[in-house]
Write a protein that binds this DNA or RNA. Structure first.
Lengths: 352, 352
DNA sequence: TTGTAGGCGTTATCAA
DNA sequence: TTGATAACGCCTACAA
């Protein structure tokens, strides 16, 4: 009726089990279990007796046997590729908030690059995690195949749709197009783009931008490869300007790069933003709003993005892909819009 | 000899168990277990046979029964109070890196305020977490007492040493003193301090600063309450300047506040940094190094801080408190130091 | 509504 | 070095 070790066995931290509570309350162990199972049928009298006993013993249900039994752990792996960009802080916050609502817990994995992603998530499978969310884009079919084999739902942000991978994207192509329109509408004719290292969202932002610029009858934008950090944006812009290029409209892969570019522009005497060159970033990180930057950029609701990731994780049957919208936030690095005719033209279909 | 469900029972995701591996390898389940237990004695022949079988079946040890048995989960709760300040990204990175080295996993808790801290960690005790690290300072004895009762080691950053709480601190008092010395050595006579909301590290930074300023024979610094964000720093400085105050040396509770203050100062025509007012921040977040700021500040090795947290968690017997050093990083918001005599005076003992 | 019994997949113990 | 067996603490039948 009552297993030996359920009281305490001296060697380990003694844990109060449902058996001890049962004994104190004068009921069976199953009854205690039912009291702690939402929606189970227990008489009020018994429930109160049990809760009183549990309270007295400071009983905390142990999730592990239940996981062992049901196969569901309530644990979700959350994979990050580093935290250097404040935009990740927003996403992480969104994910943790959404997980909390569903009573799921986040096991944080700082993977660095998506090479390690497979290994790390595989590692975590020993905890029987229910799923994984990767803020780090899954870039290779090999990694995707590895994740597939785990047999758990995997959501990845801004990845290509490999296999059963579920993808939540920011509307990168639209952002690129809107950036082009915003700059062209404001009179820019010499466009330039500061690129990140190759990944799906970078590629889409760029292609959306370039194609729309060309569709608007302007030459293909100049291009410089920066990366994703302030320093890389700064260096790339210094180099671009040193090469003699004088674009009058600049779109950057993200805000950090844009802010780096702004600072580089400021080193050139007589070159003014937005009079001589207009700049648009992407993400709307807090620093974009700082007085020293007042950067025009695309805002995306990161809390929503986090929520979408968690929701997709639970979808059954699996939805394969959703994207979150973005809004152009106009600040001081672009001029005010005057021309209405071109504004209308910006509604034209993409040169796909 | 071989339990029924160990192959697959149709209802759940079928998991390969040590029993299936044992059967394929022609050994007992215990032997399989030993092969996957570091340091257990198994003959080479058997080990290879088992590993081959495990490989063939893609066996992944299930951690849950082991946890049930040993009481050790390898899970550590990591409590954050939000991610708005980039310094937290650094700390989080340090913690995850150190945990990984010890083969521990981080369960991320975004607590918002330390009120929820107790509840959330208590929640996680159902996973039999081995310990908790709170980047959020534990501010009340009540929360600390709650954590005490969990019977697991808890490390908190920059908290007061309540009960069995283990504390890792940045050297806040020293930072305050060094900031005072740095400003006074550079000729400041009218000091001001932008404070955060009350918490242990804010209090120590301020008290270290104020006392040293007074010890150096100057009047008590002016004080304005900002908070911990750029916006709050900006607003507080705008107000301070509007009140007619014209300090020539400013120390801020952190870099975000300092950068906000810098931007506020820039709104006043003719007020130059560092000629008219010198500014020092704290944390050395990436933005402090940006060209637009070039903020003099105190750098702290956040990776080290993370490592310390993890190490303290494992200390037995528990060490109660350590602190990590910081270094003054001189940039463009302070003047260059000329006077040597005062430099020597800065080595004088604190007016404690 | 309540209790009994079996199983989840490991580790720990002890005997062979 | 290996194997058999008993926990670990819960959930899920099924019986009362």
């Amino acid at each position: 009726m009552c297993p030996a070790g359920s009281t305490s066995n001296g060697k380990r931290r003694p844990q109060v089990s449902s058996w001890s509570v049962a004994r104190l309350a004068g009921v069976s162990q199953s009854t205690v279990s039912r009291v702690f199972t939402p929606g189970a049928s227990v008489s009020l009298a018994v429930r109160e007796k049990v809760l009183a006993a549990a309270d007295q013993l400071k009983y905390r249900p142990n999730a592990l046997p239940a996981i062992l039994q049901t196969g569901r752990s309530g644990l979700v792996a959350v994979v990050m590729g580093g935290f250097y960009n404040p935009v990740y802080a927003g996403i992480l916050h969104g994910i943790t908030a959404a997980l909390k609502e569903r009573r799921l817990e986040a096991v944080l994995v700082d993977a660095g690059s998506d090479e390690n992603l497979g290994d790390r998530v595989d590692d975590l499978s020993r905890y029987r995690i229910d799923g994984a969310i990767s803020v780090l884009a899954v870039g290779s079919a090999k990694v995707a195949a590895r994740l597939d084999q785990l047999g758990i739902p995997v959501v990845a942000v801004n990845s290509r749709p490999f296999g059963t991978l579920r993808v939540v994207s920011t509307s990168n192509r639209t952002i690129g197009r809107d950036a082009a329109d915003a700059l062209v509408d404001r009179g820019c004719t010499q466009l330039a783009y500061l690129a990140g290292r190759d990944n799906p969202s970078q590629r889409e932002r760029e292609s959306g931008f370039s194609k729309r610029v060309v569709a608007r009858g302007l030459p293909t934008p100049q291009r410089a490869v920066a990366g994703f950090t302030y320093e890389e944006g700064y260096a790339a812009m210094v180099q671009l300007l040193a090469s003699g290029a004088r674009p009058d409209g600049l779109f950057c892969v993200n805000d950090l790069v844009a802010i780096g570019a702004l600072d580089a522009i400021r080193t050139v005497p007589g070159l003014r933003v937005p009079e001589d060159i207009q700049v648009i970033g992407c993400d709307d990180i807090p620093m974009a709003a700082w007085q020293q930057n007042r950067l025009t950029t695309f805002a995306q609701d990161m809390t929503l993005l986090g929520r979408q990731c968690v929701e997709m994780l639970g979808n059954d049957p699996p939805a394969s892909s959703v994207s979150v919208p973005s809004t152009l936030v106009l600040r001081a690095t672009t001029r005010t819009l005057l021309q209405t005719p071109q504004q209308m033209q910006s509604k034209a279909p993409a040169a796909q």
